[in-house]
């Protein structure tokens, strides 16, 4: 378990660089969301979750369900660095015959808990897992990662009700609140705020965090695990495209990969950040 923020920041930085390389090689895919979620994925796989890359069927492992499957480059890059497969294989993203499918496919790659892509179904699947774990008296936690945009799906809210009804306190939803979706700002496409009040009205416990602040993420997960009788939403405010100046906050980067030139610029920026982290000059 890694708790040192400098160490976590370095891992997240590597993940960002590698996911951009994989996206550039693939020639298609999503950049904004993955960059925005790199810090949270780093905390999950290197600090918070109980898991074993060498034993993906381990019954006591925590489950991670990625509902918004399109941000899988960050999941893949994190898994590669956590030891599930090689970084070389990561670079086969979206290629014919690869286990690293354009959207996560469980049967293709050990370590994935679900197949996902079509939005709004992940919380239901995580809820089913959590319900079954309670029935069997198992102690692991089910983490479901969702996007703000997919909250427009009715299926998601069906699961919000279900999880509260069955008091699934072994279920933690982390929402990537980055305010972007394919066609623009989420609040213009279909307003979601006020999130906290909405979820509390549905009998969820809500914690709000800065999705790039390691201590905040870690303490939110600790708090979430201690909550009894309710599922927990960690509303993580993130910056899409985080770490690459020309991608940050721009919805146009939701669904495209960097060109060779853009990749070079992006990696140069991320390398600069890396140097700051290494020299203890990074402003967390």
């Amino acid at each position: 378990m890694i708790t040192d923020r400098k160490e976590l920041a370095l891992i997240a930085n590597t993940i960002r660089q590698d996911l951009l390389r994989a996206l550039n090689t693939a020639g298609s895919g999503h950049s904004g969301g993955p960059l925005g979620m790199a810090d949270i994925f780093t905390v999950l796989y290197f600090q918070a979750m109980k898991h074993d890359p060498q034993n993906t069927d381990w019954d006591e492992r925590d489950r991670l369900v990625l509902s918004n499957g399109h941000i899988c480059p960050v999941l893949y890059a994190t898994m590669a660095h956590a030891g599930y497969f090689s970084v070389d294989e990561l670079m086969t993203l979206r290629q014919l015959g690869s286990r690293i499918q354009g959207h996560p496919h469980r049967s293709a790659l050990p370590g994935l808990e679900t197949t996902s892509g079509p939005l709004g179904s992940g919380l239901s699947q995580g809820s089913g897992m959590a319900w079954a774990a309670k029935l069997d008296g198992k102690k692991h936690t089910v983490f479901v990662l969702t996007s703000d945009g997919e909250h427009q799906e009715g299926n998601h809210w069906e699961a919000v009700m279900f999880a509260a009804k069955y008091k699934l306190d072994n279920l933690i939803q982390i929402m990537d609140r980055n305010f972007i979706q394919i066609e623009g700002n989420t609040e213009e496409v279909m307003p979601l705020d006020p999130i906290k009040e909405k979820y509390e009205a549905f009998n969820w416990h809500v914690i709000e965090v800065n999705g790039h602040h390691y201590e905040e993420i870690i303490s939110a997960i600790t708090e979430a695990k201690a909550v009894k009788g309710k599922p927990v939403l960690i509303n993580a405010l993130t910056t899409p495209g985080k770490g690459v100046s020309f991608m940050e906050g721009d919805y146009k980067w939701h669904g495209k990969p960097p060109s060779a030139e853009e990749l070079e610029k992006a990696l140069a920026e991320l390398q600069q950040v890396r140097t700051q982290i290494e020299q203890d000059q990074y402003d967390y």
Binding site: G128, N155, E158, F162
Partner: peptide, 23 residues
């Protein structure tokens, strides 16, 4: 037994999660 209410999308996706847990 789980009663999911009038929510057929949730019905099958929750079931998928239960199957993932060995049910």
């Amino acid at each position: 037994f789980a009663q999911v209410g009038v929510a057929e999308q949730n019905l099958v996706t929750v079931a998928s999660g239960m199957a993932a847990a060995g049910k």
